[in-house]
Write a protein that binds this DNA or RNA. Structure first.
Length: 873
DNA sequence: GCGGACTGCTTACCT
DNA sequence: ACAGGTAAGCAGTCCGCG
């Protein structure tokens, strides 16, 4: 008996749904189709899907020069399949149900290298007529067998891996075959790579396959951004897209080809005078009025079909399903609507649909590609556009239903325009990033924007497995073979020990050099050959090859780990090729292109360690993850000891950084060389602080860079949920303290700080500080009813709001005031200034200031002193 | 019945 | 929703105390 985990069942459901939709298409006439010629010019692969009607894989291509979309249907006879270790003869005798399954096609014997067991084995490959016969139904073939491999890979991805169709790369149809277009690699890059890997044949061979992915042109693909406005009878109610009960009153369209258009529905009692058009936001917006909503949608569909990429913001869950269901309501037949709606995504008939809301919500994109620019904010078009391109939605003081035509047109067009602009700014950065990451991960762009990084890295590595003829292991087999963890995490609930943080020396330190191990974890993974198949490999003799005494894990030495190879290669390409090229190329499109390449690489490199320790990752391998962090701790600790030996003074370090106070530059260089020689990984000078104020707490300091810029790390005075008045006080005190030049200034400045603090104290007591500045802004991370262990203050405030009829949801920022009343808090909407509890705010003042005063050896108490109490209480 | 010590939960941050 | 480590505030519990 086999018990399956809950998650797996969910996966199956999704798969099931996908294939069902595909099957439905069998009964439909698809009237909207691209041509399938025998020969085409070079065209970019937009996506690969399974076409249920044709019963084969479909590759969607776009020729940017002639602006044509092509469909290429598989003609190699590729079929959905799975692998089993049941022999063909046994299959016939004991598992005849498989052979008799209506979807069964044929079987073959295939030899695969099994990386987990380090041996070659023969498997039986069972081919089926359609993906659903493999898996996704209760009676699919994989359910009839005790053990299968590779049966949970979605078919279109399986097709990509087997046929090496790289999404985002150029192919052409030649005599009906799909052929990749060769890529020219500049001789400087070719030469540099040869030199870099002159004594490593394996890397050299591998890198030759990767370089074209970055050197092939990334065209500016024509695209259309769309946004709809729907009539809403009630305020603050978002219409339900599945019901689509209300009229679509406007459709805003912004194309990368310059299209600026708004389709508007004529409504009773509303008119547009010619002079109103003078108020248009952009005078070249083309406005088209429609008497019937049906005609308006028809016009929209015909425009939409001219673009290979459709851009929306939340189009998966609103605009496209709304249009689809509204069109059905208005009498369109299913096959006349070039949109397919699934539970959580919407796709289009000819090209691909990219929902930017999903894309910007990908954690790895937020953190690594945009440096956390919109971190902690709500994820509306307005905030994201404002944070990234500095442009906001048009503000409105009424609902779209109440707007005049011209207001509606302006508002609607701006939204569509923002969607487009988010993909065009900075030489089409976002589009290029998506296409490059598609190439790296072998994930079609429309899949890429809807999945998190663990799926991208999985696809990337699965592709490499298939290319090498490797068996793709099942997750539970990796766990069974390597599951045991040898370390314990400091944090309760975590699986294994992570980074090391050195105890900081408190005080003020002039001239601090910060050394940084450049991409520490990826470097460790490369240097120590870490991969799921090499860590704790089955080869007995390797068991003596333990890299560090702290852990019992050994690493295979006689074969290259796949993860180590790929991660190492991407790391090298970023560090030695594309970062350098980005730096040396004069400003212009090429420079910005190299920057996009190195950012795309960064996303993968930085997440490569994390996925090893994430149980949702298909190649999850806890010992590989804990060996990585253990080695990083080892490298950092040994480096600290060496620094001390050299007479250097390390004052702090965290994970991969080392702060050295006032170093002798020769000694510093000696240390850097030693690290390189001892560990074979690079440590570099990251930055120099003119001055660092260390509070004595970990992850908590202020540094002044040479250009005077402030680096404030972890201090309460900087945190998002600190009340503004405390942030202000913190900044003002920081300003005063930064004036200290020498010892002689200290007393004077301390006096100024004292006055400042007393002033705040007095204003708090006298309730002179506005509610807005006292407000605490804390995010609700889960539904209210999920706070069962305790009731934090922001939840108390949220509950009060809920009682008043507010709709409070996860992700909402609750703004509240600490009061003297029963709960001790009130949402700002309900609070009055005379209810404020000043004592609670004094504590805020204390913690935010203490962290910076501690560095100067100044006691907060000595500032507040008894005098305040005497004077004001 | 109350306050202090303690643990655990929650959020926001750092690398 | 790729990882673990740290700071801080508060909620809730236990314990001692004539």
């Amino acid at each position: 008996m086999k018990r399956r985990e809950h998650r797996e069942e969910e996966e199956e459901e999704e798969e099931f749904e996908e294939e069902i939709e595909d099957n439905e298409e069998k009964t439909e006439e698809i009237s909207i189709k691209a041509e399938t010629p025998q020969n085409t010019p070079p065209s970019i692969v937009l996506t690969v899907t399974y076409d249920g009607k044709a019963g084969r894989a479909l590759v969607k291509l776009y020729d940017p020069v002639n602006d044509r979309i092509y469909f290429w249907y598989d003609n190699t006879g590729h079929k959905p399949y799975l692998l089993t270790n049941i022999r063909p003869e046994e299959l016939v005798s004991k598992f005849s149900k498989v052979i008799l399954h209506p979807g069964f096609s044929h079987i073959e014997a295939v030899e695969k290298y099994d990386p987990l067991n380090d041996r070659r084995e023969i498997f039986t490959k069972i081919n089926a007529k359609d993906p659903l016969s493999i898996g996704g139904r209760a009676d699919s073939i994989r359910e009839l067998l005790p053990k299968t491999w590779e049966s949970r890979i979605r078919y279109h991805l399986c097709y990509i891996y087997d046929n090496e169709v790289v999404p985002g790369m150029f192919y052409r149809i030649e005599d009906g075959r799909l052929v990749q277009v060769p890529v020219e690699v500049p001789s400087e890059i070719e030469g540099f790579i040869r030199k870099l890997y002159s004594n490593d044949k394996e890397y050299l061979e591998e890198v030759e396959k990767w370089i074209p992915l970055f050197q092939a042109p990334v065209p500016n693909i024509k695209r259309l951004s769309v946004d709809i406005e729907v009539f809403t009878p009630q305020e603050n109610r978002v219409p339900n897209p599945r019901e689509a009960n209300y009229e679509i009153i406007a459709i805003g369209l912004a194309g990368s080809d310059g299209l600026r258009k708004v389709l508007v529905l004529k409504r009773l009692g509303m008119e547009l005078r010619p002079e109103d058009l003078d108020d248009l936001l952009y005078d070249d917006i083309e406005v088209e009025f429609f008497d019937s909503e049906y005609d308006m949608l028809r016009e929209f569909f015909s425009i939409m079909l001219q673009y290979p990429i459709l851009i929306t913001f939340n189009g998966d869950n609103f605009d496209l399903p709304y249009i689809y269901h509204r069109a059905l309501k208005l009498g369109f037949r299913k096959e006349e609507i070039p949109i397919t709606v699934r539970r959580n995504e919407a796709s289009i008939a000819l090209g691909i649909h990219l929902d930017l809301y999903k894309f910007f919500n990908i954690r790895a994109i937020e953190v690594y590609a945009f440096g956390g620019k919109y971190r902690g904010m709500d994820r509306t078009l307005d905030t994201i556009a404002h944070a990234i391109i500095g442009m906001s939605k048009l503000s409105r003081d009424k609902t779209v239903s109440q707007m005049s035509y011209v207001e509606l047109i302006n508002y609607n067009f701006r939204d569509a325009f923002l969607g487009l602009y988010l993909t065009t700014y900075d030489d089409n950065l976002v589009l290029r990033l998506i296409l490059l990451m598609s190439r790296i991960s072998k994930t079609p762009p429309d899949d890429l924007v809807r999945n998190q990084i663990s799926a991208w890295i999985r696809n990337m590595l699965y592709y490499e497995h298939r290319k090498r003829g490797w068996l793709i292991p099942e997750k539970e087999d990796i766990i069974k073979a390597k599951g045991d963890i040898a370390t314990r995490a400091i944090i309760k609930g975590k699986k294994y020990a992570g980074a090391i943080v050195l105890d900081p020396m408190p005080g003020i330190f002039p001239r601090v050099y910060v050394l940084d191990f450049a991409s520490m974890y990826p470097s460790v993974i490369k240097r120590w050959n870490i991969s799921y198949e090499t860590v704790k490999c089955p080869n007995e003799k390797e068991q003596y090859n333990k890299p560090i005494p702290e852990l019992p894990h050994w690493v295979c030495n006689d074969r290259r780990g796949l993860t180590a190879l790929i991660v190492g290669l991407l790391r090298d390409l970023r560090a030695y090729v594309y970062k350098k090229l980005a730096k040396s190329t004069p400003s212009g499109v090429l420079k910005s292109y190299y920057n996009v390449v190195q950012s795309a690489l960064k996303v993968f490199i930085n997440a490569s360690y994390g996925v090893l320790g994430a149980d949702i990752f298909q190649l999850y391998c806890p010992p590989a993850a804990e060996l990585t962090t253990a080695l990083a701790r080892y490298v950092l600790s040994r480096t600290v000891l060496r620094a001390l030996e050299l007479g250097l003074v390390p004052i702090y370090g965290d994970t991969d950084s080392l702060f050295i106070w006032n170093p002798d530059e020769n000694k510093l260089k000696e240390l850097i060389d030693w690290v390189d020689k001892e560990f074979g990984i690079e440590i570099e000078l990251d930055k120099v602080y003119r001055l660092v104020a260390m509070s004595g707490r970990k992850k908590n300091y202020v540094g002044i860079l040479e250009d005077g810029e402030l680096d404030i790390k972890g201090l309460v005075g900087k945190k998002r949920n600190t009340p503004d008045f405390a942030k202000e006080a913190f900044n003002e005190v920081l300003g005063l303290l930064s004036d200290i030049q020498g010892l002689e200034d200290v007393e004077k400045v301390v006096e100024e700080v004292r006055n400042k603090v007393r002033d705040y104290y007095r204003r708090l007591q006298r309730r002179e500080i506005s509610l807005n500045k006292l407000a605490i802004r804390t995010a609700l991370t889960k539904p209210l009813e999920s706070y069962t262990k305790n009731t934090p203050q922001h939840v108390k405030a949220a509950l009060q709001l809920k009682n008043l009829g507010y709709n409070v949801r996860p992700g909402d920022i609750i703004i509240y005031i600490k009061t003297t009343g029963k709960d001790g808090v009130k949402p700002i909407q309900l609070a009055r200034i005379d209810e404020v509890d000043p004592n609670k705010y004094i504590e805020y003042l204390r913690t935010s200031l203490e962290q910076v005063l501690d560095a100067f050896g100044i006691e907060f108490e000595s500032i507040m002193g008894s005098s305040i109490i005497d004077n004001y209480s």
